[in-house]
Nucleic acid binder design. Sequence first.
DNA 1: AATGAATGAGTTTTCATTCAT
DNA 2: GATGAATGAAAACTCATTCAT
Lengths: 190, 190, 190, 190
Amino acid sequence: MKFKDETKTAQIFSATLKLVQQKGLSGITMSEIAKAARIATGTLYIYFKNKPDLINALFTYCRKNATNIYFDNYEESAPFKTGFKIIWSNLVKFRMDHFDQAVFLDQCYHSPFITENTKEITRKMIQPLYKLVERGKEEKFLKDIDNMLLLTFMSGSINEFIKYSNYSGKKILSSDTGLLFQLCWDALKA
Amino acid sequence: MKFKDETKTAQIFSATLKLVQQKGLSGITMSEIAKAARIATGTLYIYFKNKPDLINALFTYCRKNATNIYFDNYEESAPFKTGFKIIWSNLVKFRMDHFDQAVFLDQCYHSPFITENTKEITRKMIQPLYKLVERGKEEKFLKDIDNMLLLTFMSGSINEFIKYSNYSGKKILSSDTGLLFQLCWDALKA
Amino acid sequence: MKFKDETKTAQIFSATLKLVQQKGLSGITMSEIAKAARIATGTLYIYFKNKPDLINALFTYCRKNATNIYFDNYEESAPFKTGFKIIWSNLVKFRMDHFDQAVFLDQCYHSPFITENTKEITRKMIQPLYKLVERGKEEKFLKDIDNMLLLTFMSGSINEFIKYSNYSGKKILSSDTGLLFQLCWDALKA
Amino acid sequence: MKFKDETKTAQIFSATLKLVQQKGLSGITMSEIAKAARIATGTLYIYFKNKPDLINALFTYCRKNATNIYFDNYEESAPFKTGFKIIWSNLVKFRMDHFDQAVFLDQCYHSPFITENTKEITRKMIQPLYKLVERGKEEKFLKDIDNMLLLTFMSGSINEFIKYSNYSGKKILSSDTGLLFQLCWDALKA
DNA sequence: AATGAATGAGTTTTCATTCAT
DNA sequence: GATGAATGAAAACTCATTCAT
């Protein structure tokens, strides 16, 4: 899998994301992806050795993208609540702006495509979040409970809300995200 | 005379759930399902016209099951917080006791199998939850904000936590659910 | 294949004929036949060992029936033209009154069901026709040409006309059959 | 680049015709066709969406072919009997030279594969024959009777004779066709 | 004998992957 | 590298036949 043409890779990724959002991981074929990416089926195999490879590469791409967005604008040196709010907003931002990627990542967890190795790599990416939560507890901003409980609570509530918004077709207003943050903060604050 | 064996539907459902949890919707074949259900492939087609039909029927079954569990022990006449806690616990209970069903339902949202019709039917099932939330707001227990915001917040946070527990292999203690409820309540309370 | 219940055999035969007329030999299944005959699939196998057996038995039945009708009212002692006209009319009669059987017999010639043995038996049934044609030639009524040429000419022209009538939905009038006989006679007469 | 091989359609058609002649429409499978056409099963589905499509396409092809042959060498301006004899000979020619196609067309009339649409199209193809028969009647060459009666008589008698010849294994001599034409002409002439 | 559910071999069809151009 | 036709293994589905009741 050599990146012979960055544009093509992008086309393939975006075509795949579009299709997965429409029909799920179970419903897509290599030739559909090729057609949606406006290339020949054979060309797909120049860029990716096989289907699992393509899915794994896209998975990694999305995870990296997510992580980049999560920590955008974030400064460890800033006060805790500032940092927390930035990251929280970034979580929302990623899921809102890249809903197709969020859906794809979701679908991958139970797919036979993603290898344990790929999963392991992605686990490491969110380490900085742990650090933040840890600090929040030390500085008495957050309840002193298990990190994963805090983190899953935060991400789960965001996830579900964005999903709902997308499926119901309701636009998300900044007042909504404001309320959502308030709920989250009330939940987690010490 | 030989009659249709009603336990067979149950066998097929449970085999399918097991396989979906293991390999995702994308990874399962009709013959695998048959084998796991210890019946012949052809028999599958006596009970379900085709693969989408099987998946849709299982989807409906799981949704019904979920709804039944959600309102188990719930009395509209009880005080609000009692009722709320029961339902909250039931949400947790369903996802913990029937994690395979929760996973399956999740996977279905983007699958090409579930028809719009099936989706519509399931939407109607959670109407009573709205009523409870509505009452909670009237009685000033809950924050006066959009119902779906409250509901998705609640279910999202539960979802994610149970998922995490299952994948990490960590047993859920009753102290964990107690904490989780506390977080949720702090978030939603007026 | 024991004839346990004559009624059932008749039901099976008539159901099969109806279905073959509708969808051809290639389109019918044992369970369809059973359903059309208002019996269970398993019951079919009490009356006929298997599908080829059923088709062969029906084939034999139809051939016998055809032969019976062909020679109905026919007296070898009658004058040639009288006998010829009777048989000619009977050929028409069989195909008109039992079009489904005629269609079935037609379809069978190229089917993998009919064994050489069955075909052989049926060949023998039309021997008396040869005799008649032979006599017609001797008595100088018919052209002195190959028997099969005469016979296929006769039956072919009848066949096609009845087929056309059935497919176009046009009722056959006795004036039509009169004309048809005239054509045939003009062709074959010495 | 690789282009669709147009000879492949011909290979598939000829393989199908061969098999249908051998075992009838009811006895052929897609993989047998593929094998006989020396291609992979999947390749069949590049050229034809499914089995009914293949059969319908072949049906249309054979009907077109038949029609072309029927009117080969035929000039409307020629004297009636010349034109009539040419077409009559062409009818014989098609059935003799392309007996497999004639058999296939015959088998199709009651098959579940041929759609009403396909049947309709083929009906239109023999319109010119009507015109000829019409003219024959006007010019007092033919008996003044229903067109279809004349036409089915003609084609039916040819059909059956060629069928007989093929199944009995008897070679058709030009003297046979001469006689057959004589019979037909005697029948139809005014 | 009658039933119709169950079976599994066989059929149709799909699709990841290869290959000739 | 790009193409899309070709491949064939595997999936979905059918159906003649059996079998428990």
